[in-house]
Design a protein around this nucleic acid. Structure first.
Lengths: 203, 203
DNA sequence: GTTCAATAGTTAGGACTCCTTAGTTTTAGC
DNA sequence: GCTAAAACTAAGGAGTCCTAACTATTGAAC
């Protein structure tokens, strides 16, 4: 077979497939990094994820049911992991008067330290992104946000805290200009959030 | 607190962080979709991944050690999964004369059907990407390839089958024009491969 | 040619994941 | 007050993924 028999376009997959394949690789990288990080702290991957989530989110989100939705797992699974974290003295329960079925999960001082260190597990993925120029970053963010939005709408990603699914989000008729009615501000692409603390679902 | 107290730039994270967060969400989407797909076929996630890999790759790559590297797992883990797949009559071993320690893993007819169906588990992720316009796709691919390349170089993703790590890959002094010495062709961004069958490592 | 280290794969045992099913307790609607 | 729904827990099971110890084969060194 001579080299001219190779044909890049027909032999190889489409650009779409390549993007998917690349995203799959990145997905694997997250898995590997999380696993490494877990080992370092003698925790399980899900335990690390819980700690990091609690560190970065307001207390009303730190309940078993919410976390189960967040991580696409059952409440039983989360309940187990929380039990393990309590035994390791990394989180503690805080019951409330008005509903004693539920409780808030708080980090202990020790838990805070661990969560803080562990949240750096994406450092290696961050580096190549930091070195991109700003317009590339914006384009990349826009493409990725569009993809996540679609996955939100089809129910594969259940958690909804991005601007496009928020009741404060407004768009002009051409779909060009975006606006946040809570902040009273136009939203440029770089302003769009993927995990907004003020998010409220439409409807 | 009045709305003007909100400050998008200071209160919120950087674009970098948002990109990471979005990639993390996508990573989760892959995990969820793979899990759903697994359940549908009464297989485990790793078993599905193995079937899909074997379907799309040449037989010399379908050995326990190679697959362990590919999926960042130990040989023991892969060995177990292969045993399970054999019991389910989805793959079979093929021993070779020159080295009877090792064997090639082939799909059975049944395995081929399952792998073919299962490989559609990324369909939902593909849809939003398909609907992007071509120049966006190329930019996206380029950004993602750069990121994967970095992760390859730092050893987080061990498997190397992308153009930039191939001995046939050539770049001009400005780093603008790319060329494949095996195919004797210039490589535009859309031509870059993430999983080239002809890949040979530098050195 | 035999010995010895490296290589390919397996087995066994353990911690953790994540599920399902089946509870308990509490809350809230009628 | 009664009942349905909700929040969480418990128990049990299949699967993940590891480490460590093992067998068998290969290949290179003497």
């Amino acid at each position: 077979m001579s080299h001219s028999d190779f044909d890049l376009t027909s032999q190889n997959e489409s650009v779409d497939s390549k993007i998917i394949a690349t995203l799959e690789r990145l997905s694997q990288a997250f898995r590997v990094l999380l696993w490494q990080e877990s080992k370092e702290f003698s925790l399980s991957p899900i335990q690390v994820q819980l700690l990091i989530f609690i560190l970065h989110h307001s207390e009303e989100k730190c309940r078993v049911s919410y976390l189960a939705d967040e991580f696409n797992m059952t409440k039983a699974t989360i309940s187990d992991s929380v039990k393990a974290l309590i035994q390791k003295d990394l989180v503690k329960k805080e019951f409330q008067q008005h509903d004693t079925r539920s409780y808030l999960i708080h980090l202990t001082t020790k838990g805070q330290k661990v969560a803080d260190k562990a949240s750096r597990f994406t450092t290696e993925i961050r580096k190549p992104i930091e070195s991109m120029d700003e317009s590339n970053k914006e384009n990349l963010l826009k493409s990725l946000l569009d993809t996540v939005l679609h996955l939100n709408q089809t129910g594969i990603i259940t958690i909804q805290r991005m601007c496009q699914t928020c009741r404060f989000y407004q768009k002009d008729s051409e779909g060009q200009d975006h606006f946040c009615a809570l902040l009273h501000r136009p939203l440029h692409i770089a302003d769009h959030r993927i995990d907004c603390p003020e998010h409220e679902l439409i409807g």
